[in-house]
């Protein structure tokens, strides 16, 4: 008699809306897509022509290799790299990290294989929270690190043992030694009394292999390890990048927001995007002569 108990007459079943067929959900491209596209094109043509009528493209003096403007800056979309160059080894900042970033971007869809949240803005359950956290975290960390490298926090690192005082020239020309904390990560290389041997460690086959095999490659031709330099230019900055990234993922995980690989990608991409943004904005608006950290109104370009 189980059938009698479960099967109810159709009239008693709760009315469910009929699922609409795929075709019924579709609109015609002409006119529903083409017209917005056309209007968009017209609007932006007008916008850019108006912009061009009122603001002229810059043209400075003829290029002169003998006169260096200060500061000289790359195009704005590369100012993030130029900013990064100030803080670490140039090979890492200028070439290796960007390459890793591009490879990382390419790998995103191959790491995040599940289809959760496809085609919807912030499709997973915690996506908005992760985005907000990642944006604030990455911006804050980057701003703090930039401020640290500009020597803003030197007062709290004066206790560090072994730090050499700085020679400062007074107004009357006399020199005094001033006890200062770490002015930047680069101080790690220059401000400690490292034994000279550590700055100049020969590498096996130095000068020999080069002459025989690797004449045209610059590997091992005249290769000396500068341990303090490697520490301040490569080990510390890279550890910071890696450490803060792991800390960000770990925090999101401990908050219970990290459920899928999509969430992991959201953390990483948001962190990357806002790091990129902060570095670009800093490089564009906060770097004056000598790449000093200055407010936007303090940037004066010395034409040389």
């Amino acid at each position: 008699m189980a059938i009698e108990q479960t099967a109810r007459p159709a009239a008693q079943r709760p009315a469910r809306p009929r699922q609409r067929r795929e075709r019924e959900e579709e609109l015609l491209v002409w006119p529903d897509l083409l017209f917005p596209e056309f209007i968009c094109a017209v609007l932006f043509t007008i916008t850019f022509i108006l912009l061009s009528v009122f603001i002229d493209a810059p043209l400075l003096n003829r290029a002169n290799p003998d006169i260096t403007p200060n500061p000289s800056k790359a195009p704005w979309y590369f100012l993030n790299l130029q900013e990064l160059l100030l803080h670490m080894d140039k090979a890492w900042a200028g070439v290796i990290l960007p390459t890793i970033a591009i490879i990382g971007l390419i790998m995103v869809p191959y790491l995040d294989r599940d289809t959760e949240g496809r085609g919807v803005w912030f499709g997973t359950k915690n996506a908005v929270k992760i985005f907000g956290f990642g944006a604030i975290y990455a911006s804050a960390i980057n701003i703090l690190l930039i401020l640290f490298d500009a020597g803003k926090f030197e007062a709290i690192t004066r206790w560090v043992p072994g730090l050499q005082p700085i020679r400062e020239t007074q107004l009357d020309g006399s020199e005094v030694l001033v006890n200062k904390g770490l002015l930047s990560v680069k101080d790690f290389e220059g401000r400690f009394a490292w034994p000279e041997d550590l700055r100049n460690i020969p590498v096996p086959f130095n000068q020999q292999v080069c002459d025989i095999y690797f004449k045209d490659l610059h590997l091992w031709c005249n290769f000396h390890l500068n341990l303090p330099g490697i520490m301040s230019g490569q080990v510390i900055p890279l550890s910071l990048i890696f450490g803060f990234t792991v800390a960000m993922i770990y925090t999101v995980f401990m908050l219970g927001w990290l459920r899928t690989r999509r969430d992991l990608m959201l953390v990483l991409f948001t962190g990357f995007f806002f790091t990129f943004l902060v570095l670009t904005v800093t490089g564009s608006f906060f770097r004056g002569p000598g790449q000093e950290l200055v407010p936007p109104w303090g940037i004066v370009v010395d034409e040389g």
Binding site: I67, T68, K73, A74, G94, V95, G304
Partner: peptide, 21 residues
């Protein structure tokens, strides 16, 4: 080929030159 162009590309030139090996 103005000062802006030359020195912006010079920065890029420097970045390219820092490629290891």
């Amino acid at each position: 080929w103005d000062q802006l162009a030359l020195w912006a590309i010079t920065v890029g030139h420097g970045i390219g030159g820092s490629a290891p090996y």
